[in-house]
């Protein structure tokens, strides 16, 4: 964002981007410090990388979800895509035992893109609210995959497919961390391109964007496709990390949305940064780790999670309106 200081408009954007992001960075620092106090050995390279590796699928999902949310929509189908991806990969290996892992991975990514395309087209062309589109898609995917497999996956994921989620490059750097970095870099790059700006404009005000020549539908469809692809990548990592499971993606859609919102991204679109969204995912994972290290009982875990999510977003909302009010002194009501 260093290039953006030249005009007052982009200066405001910097302030607002930081403003929405500040609470999540603060939260992340607090959580990481708390983990350090609880267990200093957490910051040994191995363990820290293991933590990042564990967070990777959620971070990637959050990046995809960010694109959809910032354009003013929701994607509730990502959890189902992850489950479907893992199960389908296992089924594919069941039928074509000696497939190269790259082929299967590409097939999954393609599948994710197709599901995203369907989500996007139904939402834009048929004007179905994305909440409903993706909720329906979730039912359809889960139902179809389990109908096909008779309820439980029948194949096995071989070692070479699982390497991406489980093993490390050069013996110390987990592939998942690399994948996570790559997706992050790509998302940042994307948001700085025209696409990012039009996406943001679409989410901010569809009408204004359309009037100023943005192909609103195409931008949104693309956001859904990218979210589907991100979910497929997450499926490859999750399947690699923990193997075949019929509930690999359960609840991930809500976790991803929570992460994005923790990052100060406003539901309804138009505001927030992708880095903050990914930081939100890290915060969520750090919170889980901290609770686990503290030995908080499994039951209370969700209570703490609920309180922190509400508090963080509430804090973000408060901060945000104050900063915005200060930055455009000409008036205008914060909404």
């Amino acid at each position: 964002m260093t290039t953006a200081t030249s005009t007052p408009v982009s200066y405001k954007r910097v302030v607002s981007a930081l403003g929405t992001g500040i609470p999540v960075y603060a939260l992340l620092v607090v959580l990481l410090v708390a983990i350090a106090v609880t267990d200093p050995s957490f910051y040994e390279l191995d363990r820290f990388l293991a933590f990042v590796k564990r967070a990777a699928p959620l971070v990637i999902l959050a990046a995809g979800q960010y694109l959809v949310i910032v354009s003013g929509e929701f994607d509730l189908s990502v959890g189902a895509i992850v489950t479907a991806g893992v199960v389908v990969a296992a089924e594919l290996y069941g039928s074509f035992t000696d497939s190269h892992w790259l082929v299967i991975s590409l097939a999954l990514v393609l599948g994710g893109a197709i599901v995203g395309l369907a989500n996007g087209l139904i939402t834009t062309a048929l004007r179905v609210p994305s909440f409903i589109t993706t909720l329906g898609m979730m039912l359809i995917l889960e139902g179809a995959v389990f109908y096909w497999t008779g309820g439980s996956p029948t194949g096995v994921l071989p070692e070479d497919f699982r390497a991406l989620g489980r093993n490390s490059a050069f013996g110390w750097l987990p592939w998942a961390v690399l994948a996570c970095l790559a997706v992050g870099a790509f998302a940042v790059w994307l948001m700085r391109r025209d696409f990012g700006r039009t996406l943001m404009a679409t989410g901010d005000s569809e009408r204004t964007a359309a009037l100023s020549g943005v192909r609103v539908h195409r931008v949104r469809v693309l956001a859904f496709v990218l979210s589907g692809v991100a979910a497929a990548l997450a499926a490859i990592l999750v399947g690699g990390f923990s193997g075949v499971s019929a509930q690999a993606g359960r609840g991930l859609e809500f976790e991803a949305i929570t992460a994005v919102v923790l990052g100060g991204v406003v539901l309804g679109g138009g505001r927030g940064s992708v880095v903050a969204a990914m930081a939100g995912a890290f915060s969520l994972q750090a919170l889980f780790t901290l609770l686990n290290l503290q030995g908080v009982s499994g039951a209370l875990e969700s209570t703490v999670q609920g309180v922190i999510v509400i508090a963080a977003v509430g804090l973000g909302a408060a901060n945000w309106s104050r900063i915005r009010r200060r930055s455009n002194s000409s008036g205008g009501t914060p909404s």
Binding site: P57, N292, G298
Partner: peptide, 13 residues
């Protein structure tokens, strides 16, 4: 610990 039958969570725990 409760794993909720989730393999990823189990590995983390």
């Amino acid at each position: 610990k409760f794993t909720e039958g989730d393999t990823a969570k189990t590995k983390s725990i």
